[in-house]
Computed example of a mutant assay.
Amino acid sequence: MSYTGPGFEPPQPRRPRRRVLTVALAALASGGLLGWGVYAAVGGSGKDGTPEGASVSASGPASGATRTPSPSGGSTSPSAGDGGPGATSPSASAPAASGALKGKVVVIDPGHNPGNFRHTSEINRQVDIGTNRKECDTTGTSTDDGYAEAEFTLDVAHRMRTLLEARGATVKLTQDDDRPFGPCIDERARIGNDAQADAVVSLHADGSGTGNRGFHVILPGTVRSGAADTRAIVGPSRDLGERIAGHFVRATGSAPSNYTGGGTGLVTRKDLGGLNLSTVPKVFIECGNMRDSKDAALLTSGAWRQKAARGISDGIVSFLRG
Rank of each mutant, 00 (worst) to 15 (best):
P85L: 04
R19C: 03
S89E: 01
L173R: 11
G274D: 06
D144Q: 12
D177F: 07
A308K: 02
A94E: 09
H204T: 03
I233F: 08
D186W: 14
G221D: 09
A227R: 10
A251Q: 15
A303D: 05
L173V: 15
A148Q: 09
Q196I: 10
T143R: 05
T300S: 00
E135Q: 00
G43R: 04
L266M: 13
G37V: 15
L266D: 03
T174M: 12
T260A: 01
V105T: 13
N113C: 14
P16C: 08
S55Q: 14
R231K: 07
A54Y: 03
T222M: 07
G265K: 11
F8I: 02
V106N: 01
P10R: 11
I185A: 06
A195D: 04
A29G: 05
A296Y: 04
T68E: 04
G192N: 07
A205W: 00
R167E: 05
T143I: 02
T120W: 08
A100G: 12
R310Q: 15
S93E: 04
A189W: 02
A40P: 15
G32R: 13
R118Y: 15
L275C: 12
L163R: 06
R238Y: 09
S278A: 12
D314W: 12
P281A: 05
S293C: 11
K102S: 09
H112A: 00
D48L: 09
T50S: 15
A148M: 08
L219R: 07
S202K: 10
K104W: 15
T138R: 03
V106M: 09
S75K: 08
V156S: 01
A150R: 02
G253R: 04
I285S: 00
W36M: 09
G46F: 13
L163K: 03
A27Q: 09
R213E: 10
A199N: 01
S45R: 00
S72P: 01
R19N: 01
N276Y: 14
M160W: 12
S293D: 13
G302Y: 02
L240M: 05
R310V: 15
L320C: 12
T76A: 12
S91L: 04
L240S: 05
T174I: 14
G7S: 01
S121F: 03
T120R: 10
G73A: 11
S121K: 06
R250T: 10
L320Y: 09
T230G: 13
D128E: 00
R305Y: 14
